[in-house]
Structure formats: C-alpha cells, structure tokens
Amino acid sequence: MDKPTRLYVYITLMIALLFQLFPWTGQGIILRPDFMLVVLLYWLLRAPYLCNIATAWVVGLLMDLSTGSLLGQHALAFTLTAFIALSFQKRLVLFSAMQIVSYVFALLVFTRFTLLILKLFAGHEAPSWHYFWPAVTSIILWQFLRLVLGSIARPKAGKAD
C-alpha cells in the first residue's frame, strides 16, 4: 500500500473493532491485544494527515461504548497517547525499526497506565500484574500489522519516488 486513503484507514479500524468484539473468554481476555489502539497508533505514526487526535478520541469513545465502561475513559487515554505519539512523529524517520517498536511499546504501556489510573479514580479495584500483558500481545500484533500494511520505518533510498 503506497498511498493510504481515508477510507482505507476507517476500514482497518472497523476490522479492528470486529476483532475487539470477538467473544474473548478465559485466558483470551487476559491476553487480548488492544486491536483498536494498535491500528490507531499505526495510522497516527504513518499518516498523521489522515488520522489525528480527533480520530483517536472517536476510537476511544467507540471502545468505551463497546466495553460498557464509563464514557470518556478510553477516549481520554487514547487522546493523551495520540498526542505523545504525534509529538515525536516527525522524528520517527530517524529511528531504526527496533527503536520504533520500543517507542510503540512505551505508548501501549502508557495507555494502559493512564486507563488504570482513570479506572481507579472511578472506584474500581486495582488489578494484578497481568493487567499489562495485553501490551506485550499488542506489540506482537504491531509486528504483524507492519508486515500486512507496510513498514513505517524510513523508506530505502531506491524506493522513494
């Protein structure tokens, strides 16, 4: 995919929502990657002119509605993550593939952490450490997504048109 379009972004986000709605049970619900967040971060870092903080907020709101949590929790966490992701987005071309992966991993952990604080404020109990497992599975999903949709690392000199 050379030039992603807006429609393409929305279709991939819808597919991510479908995976999010999949009836996860048992171990699956502990390990379930944050599909919507990973796809959102991918487009934020690759095509910020198609997908920006407003998109992140809407995606967060969709997450709130589909999980049945307090409206605005995921929206706030995703907005903050999107802001941090975009503030270093211009520097991303200088990063190596490994650095990009660790950057995304840090963003995923940050989202989980923000969400945890918001949930604790809303009066939920503190979960155990396996709450952060989805960040690991999400980064695996990120690698998979990179293969399917294309790398966001600096294009090779010969490839640039």
């Binding site: 903080i53 605005g72 999107a82």
Partner: peptide, 14 residues
C-alpha cells in the same frame, strides 16, 4: 490545542 480540547471533552463526558 486538539489534545486539550478532546481531554476536556472526555472529562466532561466522564
């Protein structure tokens, strides 16, 4: 500015 706007909106929603 977008971040501030949408954070405020999320907090109001919550």
């Amino acid at each position: 500015s977008r971040m501030v706007f949408f954070c405020a909106l999320s907090i109001i929603l919550m």
